[in-house]
Design a protein around this nucleic acid. Structure first.
Lengths: 193, 193
DNA sequence: CCAGTCTATTGACAGACGTTCAATAGGCAA
DNA sequence: TTGCCTATTGAACGTCTGTCAATAGACTGG
């Protein structure tokens, strides 16, 4: 049972992080105990501590990797109309959640409990929101109030996509995208009055 | 140290639930261990198990009580214009979060992790959303799509209020309320097109 | 082919927390 | 005061996190 396999630190780290991401699909963060991960990876508990320090650090590394994947995959195209680029980015977001539903839910749920995970999650969404201001500096004034509204809009978008995934409520993917992309300008407009 | 005080089951239950609510203000759900609650209440761990079965059941009881308080305090007035009543209810919500900020955050964060807590939280927000349809049956058609939008709007409202509480971003309480109450009709309108 | 060295990896151990249950003691009735 | 009912306790067990000295793969120079 204890057939030792010796890998380079890089390989081992990769293996464990990949495993963590995969376990996200079927286990919540709380269920992802050191015991489970070690057993699943075929290594001793001690090795996980050797590489990541403690349980929360391992979680952080896994969540950070998932968050980076989200940000990377929702990168809007470099050219095009602002509205068009926003629509593209939102479509990528919807597809990301659609493809990684269970894992995404685990990330969101887990991020809520731990402050450090929360920060990683916030940074990721901050990056998503920040693009809005970079992409359309003429239309969207970069004020604290606008930042606040974008934050709220992102929270709504997440809730809508997750709820839509569970029950589409008669809305097509395009309906949903139109709703998401259309609501942001409306919200920002209502701020000016 | 172990001066036993014998209470009636009702008194003891009340005491422990009240304590749980109070501990919410300074401890996350994870930090609220059986040990901590028992120590704080001046009782043995066993007694908590006697009354609530296990840790999750105690959490559920505390969160349920907090959720009930939220629903009760945001009850809209029975009479008045629909928009007026919505505004009243939202004002009560903002004030509730404002007054119980730490506890509210603990509830939201905790609800994310545990499925049962999630359900309690969802039911509470379902009740909040349900009022929208009861209050204005003429304006708001009760369709699955509209329910979905209200859900998203509630998520945005929560995020906006919590973020606003941390940093008002130059918005007054009235600005915020206007933004919240104004955005719902806009969102529902954009659904019809 | 063979030491010798480096370090990836392990297993045993301590502490914290959740949970169970038989024993204990507070208060009411007779 | 006596005796019963039951609210309450504390010890005991299992699981999980975290620590650390001991172990064993794999590469090096001879």
């Amino acid at each position: 049972m204890s057939q030792r396999t010796r890998l380079t630190p890089e390989q081992r780290r990769e293996q464990l992080l990949d495993l963590g991401i995969r376990l996200f699909a079927h286990h919540s963060l709380d269920e992802m105990s050191i015991d489970l991960v070690a057993r699943e990876a075929g290594i001793s508990r001690g090795l996980l501590y050797h590489y990541f320090g403690d349980k929360t650090a391992f979680r952080e590394a896994v969540v950070r990797r998932a968050a980076e994947a989200l940000v990377a995959q929702t990168e809007p195209p470099a050219t095009g109309e602002p509205v068009e680029r926003l629509l593209h980015s939102m479509a990528a977001y919807v597809d990301f959640v659609d493809a990684n539903y269970e894992g995404y839910v685990s990330m969101v749920r887990g991020a809520a409990s731990d402050p450090v995970l929360r920060e990683i999650y916030d940074d990721a969404f901050g990056a998503l929101g920040g693009r809005i201001f970079e992409a359309a500096p003429d239309f969207v004034p970069d004020t604290p109030a606008a930042r606040l509204v974008v934050r709220g809009w992102l929270a709504m978008s997440e809730e809508l996509v997750l709820s839509w995934k569970k029950d589409p409520a008669g809305l097509s993917r395009e309906d949903l995208l139109g709703l998401l992309a259309g609501s942001l300008p409306m919200l920002l407009d209502s701020l000016e009055t």
